[in-house]
Design a protein around this nucleic acid. Structure first.
Length: 475
RNA sequence: GCCAGCGUAUCCUAGUAGUUAAGGAGGCGGCCUGCAGAGCCGUUGCUUUCAGCAUCGUGGGUGCAAAUCCCACCGCUGGCUCCA
């Protein structure tokens, strides 16, 4: 029985989708003006675990994630500049070019981290007509107002605005330090549509609308896409915790005012990670992109580091995390190697362990996707397997398949063997190993140890086991 | 200033009232090995033969029972600007 923590109620609730066997999930994607950083990667990995586990449980999951390519301003009080256009100007390229470039980069990172791509990844600019329709409805129903070619959502008209974030409107308003957009009626009001002309500046990306040439506000796209591709009520909506105070309350207000129906059943929020104990930010200069980390350590290691902590915990990203991830990956690889090289025996002791690992894994994951507990189950199992290599070969194979399957649910792909598929290299290694075996037989350990040492220096480890020597790649 | 959350053994991380605080990393000891590696077993708060005592930031409180609930304090992080 799967339980998922719902930010709206602040507790774990038994998950039940609207339509049996089918899950409609929307997750907030990237504003594609900058590279994916490790925090983004953490959040997307979390949703990937959610989606994969739901699929593992037999749900037909339909996942939509947006690309924000217009309308996300540098200042949430609707006073700033469009992030995309700003960056494009800085790089002296067309905003559309920037968007294309960033999306390509995005997919590379996502693929390297073995994150399943969403079923649909629409761009905000692809749903402009739908946005205009929603704005019209909101104006008709009196939830929005037009001022000088801008359309704003009137948050005072929407009952329970800010419920998700437990905002106390008046108090918060009094604390506000941001500069208020003078055209807005209330502090919390936000832009649905913005005039493309501001003074003598003209927004490059702009569309015709009943309110003149303009472009959409940031929050609207998520409501529109969610409703367009998933229906008026979503089973799950995910995002980073930073979206709890503003973005998600706005989504709720827009969608529910337009449809009169509940927008989302489960709100899920992923915690931020810290970097060496500190908030990660550009101003502190400790900003790390996913690309750098993947290039340095490989996608599997980064992914392992990211899913080792629970998605609602603020885990710290530091060298120790990477080191742990590496050793654990080695542990798993060694176990799979041990299985492969074992010729098996007559024992059947692993049969029950195979069942156990699956049930404890599921028990952990059913508890709000508790990946650390899931790993605990897997590591216990690995220990059992390593000490039960005398099981029948078919049982060992079943153990291997189970291990690979469960790790796969966490997005860790152990189907690819680390090593060379090159036939020549395998033949070469065979020659070297034979020479070394010859010298070992002659008790010329000086030579055999030298061969082993030299190979190790280039990242090849020879292991002398009871069933003869074998080798593996270590770097 | 206001709001939210966190503090678990050497380190990382689960556990949010019910016998021995899960798991991992690192350290140490052992088995195995010609030696390594891998793996397995034990150990990793204190006194230790058996055993006993302590322990989840600190101090109080509630309960038969607390890492877990309540209060205070100390420390840390995040949000109230943009963020995943």
């Amino acid at each position: 029985m799967l339980k998922i923590y719902n930010t709206m109620t602040r507790q774990k609730e038994v998950f039940k989708p609207i339509e049996e066997g089918r899950v409609r999930i929307y997750t907030c994607g990237q504003t594609v003006y900058d590279d994916v950083h490790i925090g983004n990667a953490r959040t997307y990995s979390s949703w990937d675990v959610v989606v994969r586990y739901l699929r593992y449980k037999g749900y037909d999951v339909f996942h939509v994630q947006n690309f924000t390519d217009v309308g996300h301003l540098t200042d949430d009080a609707d006073q700033g500049e469009d992030k995309i256009e700003k960056r494009a100007r800085e790089e002296n390229i067309n905003p559309w070019e920037l968007v294309d470039k960033q999306i390509q980069e995005y997919w590379q990172v996502i693929d390297n981290l073995n994150i399943q791509r969403p079923n649909i990844s629409p761009r905000a600019t692809a749903v402009i007509p739908d946005m205009i329709e929603i704005i019209k409805i909101l104006l008709e129903k009196g939830y929005a107002y037009e001022v000088e070619g801008n359309v704003y959502y009137d948050t005072f008209k929407f009952k329970d605005y800010g419920k998700l974030a437990k905002l106390k409107l008046d108090e918060e308003k009094a604390q506000a330090r941001v500069v208020q957009d003078p055209l807005k009626r209330n502090y919390y009001d936000f832009a649905l549509w913005l005039n493309a002309r501001k003074g003598d500046q003209i927004h490059i990306m702009r569309w015709n609308s009943p309110w003149g040439e303009g472009y959409p506000g940031w929050h609207l796209e998520c409501s529109v896409m969610g409703m367009k591709y998933l229906g008026e009520t979503l089973d799950i909506h995910g995002g980073g915790i930073d979206h709890i105070p503003t973005h998600h309350p706005n989504e709720i207000a827009q969608s529910e005012a337009a449809t009169g129906k509940k927008f989302v059943n489960w709100w899920m929020h992923a915690e931020f990670i810290t970097l060496n104990g500190q908030k990660m930010s550009k101003s502190l200069g400790n900003y790390v992109t996913a690309r750098e980390l993947i290039d340095e350590h490989g996608g599997l290691v980064v992914r392992m580091g990211l899913v080792s902590g629970h998605y609602r915990s603020a885990v710290d990203w530091n060298p120790k995390v990477i080191e742990n991830a590496k050793s654990n990956i080695e542990k798993i690889r060694n176990c799979l190697n041990n299985i492969e090289h074992s010729s098996g025996g007559n024992s059947e002791t692993l049969k029950s362990a195979i069942k156990e690992v699956r049930s404890s894994f599921e028990e952990a994951m059913d508890d709000d996707f508790n990946t650390p507990r899931a790993f605990a189950a897997i590591y216990e199992f690995i220990k059992q397997v390593n000490s039960s290599l005398d099981n029948k070969k078919e049982i060992l194979n079943k153990a291997r398949d189970t291990l690979i399957e469960l790790l796969g649910v966490l997005g860790l792909d152990f189907t690819k063997k680390k090593g060379f598929d090159d036939k020549k290299i395998n033949e070469l290694m065979e020659i070297i190993i034979n020479i070394r075996e010859q010298s070992r037989k002659e008790k010329n350990y000086e030579l055999s140890d030298k061969i082993r040492k030299k190979l190790r220096e280039v990242g090849i480890q020879i292991e002398d086991g009871a069933e003869g020597p074998r080798w593996k790649i270590t770097t």
